[in-house]
């Protein structure tokens, strides 16, 4: 077993962790917030909370 074999295993492990993080956070976000909030973004509009520009 050489160093590069260990590096291969580390890469597999990190990939699995990152993939798991993405899926868990995605599911958590989808179950925490309503679909109305998540898909409320409108093209060209600034977020009401951060910007107060007038059209």
């Amino acid at each position: 077993m050489q160093t590069w074999n260990y590096i291969e295993y580390i890469a597999w492990g990190l990939s699995a962790l990152l993939g798991l993080y993405l899926v868990v956070d995605w599911l958590r976000t989808d179950t925490t917030y309503s679909e109305d909030v998540l898909t409320s973004s409108r093209e060209g509009e600034l977020e009401a909370i951060t910007e107060e520009h007038k059209g």
Binding site: D36, V37, L38, R42, E45, E47, A48, H53, K54, G55
Partner: peptide
């Protein structure tokens, strides 16, 4: 202009950040 760029908020609760 940053005052009248025509892109004011119209209901976006969660949007991309500038």
């Amino acid at each position: 202009s940053d005052k009248m760029d025509g892109m004011g908020p119209h209901g976006t609760k969660v949007g991309l950040l500038r």
